[in-house]
């Protein structure tokens, strides 16, 4: 049994402007100890997917209208708030993009760390303090015992993110969800945070969901990748297969639009762009959501009438498109070139 199985997840926001179908068809499995990267542009539903798994979506206006989130076989969408609280922090932990705002500036680092330990593991004050020092050492904060009595403002952005990570792993979770954990940081600091996450994932045998907009971060840290577009999971594959042979026209276009740091002649050439914009999720296209921007969809195509389903194109490589690259033999693949 997979550690986490998300089946046909649909999370909608009921707003005055209408029903926003923020997550509208997400399916994946995650095995123990593996890292899944969820990648996509702003508004594609990647963060709402994470919050839905954690039971942290704001209700109202949001609601999981369909689907299951099976964690060790137990459907988290069926749990009440008390049961969810027990799962959160203890079995599934989450870290967010901005370490500046996720720490309370008026509390000492030590207080914020020991709180979790005492709440979830029922530790005594002394035991929690001792464990907090160990945790800070584990995330490589030097002189940990003394740093415990510091307030967050004494730490740099990277160091604060390490404190957040220390808090997240405090209860030895089986799954860590990291939502853009390194986005607000400089690249050099980002690299070290990613190294740290990798090290901890191995040491604690955790599974990880890494949410990011950065294909480079995915290439570095993920075992498997899920690409999201307009609320839907559109492609899922092993990391090497995804980068070697992207299938979905959107994935190809996204990779093509990226400037590469090691690419010669990029100055003289133009970057590939994707025409148009993602659809409004109050009223998305009836059929394929990428259809209006897809270079392969022609007018009387089936994919403009019927919504493509996620299908397994080859072992472990899933795609939601009527025109995956490997079925376009003979068609010149302009996009992504």
């Amino acid at each position: 049994m997979a550690l986490l199985e998300v089946k046909n997840l649909h999370t909608h926001f009921f707003t005055r402007e209408g029903v926003v179908r923020a997550v509208d068809g997400v399916d994946f499995e995650l095995e123990r100890g593996r890292t899944l990267g969820i990648v996509g542009e702003s508004g594609c539903g990647k963060s709402v997917t994470a919050l839905s798994i954690m039971g942290l979506i704001p209700k109202p206006p949001a609601k999981i209208v369909e689907g299951q989130v099976l964690f060790e076989g137990r459907d988290l969408t069926e749990l009440d708030e008390g049961e969810l609280e027990d799962v959160r922090g203890r079995h599934i932990a989450m870290i967010f993009q901005d370490p500046m705002t996720s720490l309370n500036p008026t509390l000492k680092i030590g207080t914020q760390l020991t709180e979790t330990l005492r709440r979830h593991l029922g530790m005594s004050k002394d035991a929690a303090r001792k464990r907090a020092i160990e945790l800070l050492e584990e995330v490589h904060i030097p002189n940990a015992a003394a740093r415990l009595d510091d307030y967050p403002h004494r730490y740099s952005g990277g160091m604060r993110q390490r404190v957040m990570i220390a808090g997240a792993i405090a209860c030895n979770p089986k799954l860590l969800i990291a939502d853009e954990p390194s986005t607000a940081l400089d690249v050099t600091v980002q690299a070290r945070i990613l190294d740290l996450l990798e090290e901890l994932r191995k040491a604690h045998d955790m599974a990880m969901i890494l949410i990011t907009h950065d294909m480079g971060v995915v290439a570095e840290a993920a075992d498997e990748v899920a690409v999201m577009y307009a609320g839907q999971l559109v492609e899922r594959a092993g990391v090497q297969d995804l980068f070697d042979r992207p299938e979905h026209p959107y994935t190809e276009a996204l990779l093509g639009a990226l400037p590469h740091v090691d690419e010669e002649h990029v100055r003289e050439s133009r970057l590939t762009t994707i025409p148009g914009r993602p659809p409004n999720l109050v009223d998305p296209p009836e059929a394929c959501r990428f259809g209006p921007r897809c270079p392969y969809a022609s007018l009387n195509d089936s994919c403009t009438q019927v919504e493509p389903q996620l299908r397994e194109l080859r072992k472990g490589h899933w795609v939601r498109s009527a025109h995956p690259a490997s079925e376009r033999a003979g068609v010149p693949a302009e996009v992504g070139a």
């Binding site: 980002q190 990613l194 294909m215 480079g216 290439a219 570095e220 980068f243 590469h260 090691d262």
Partner: peptide, 10 residues
């Protein structure tokens, strides 16, 4: 430190 979209090079 720059991540590149290529798992092998990474």
């Amino acid at each position: 430190a720059v991540p590149v979209p290529d798992p092998r090079k990474m």
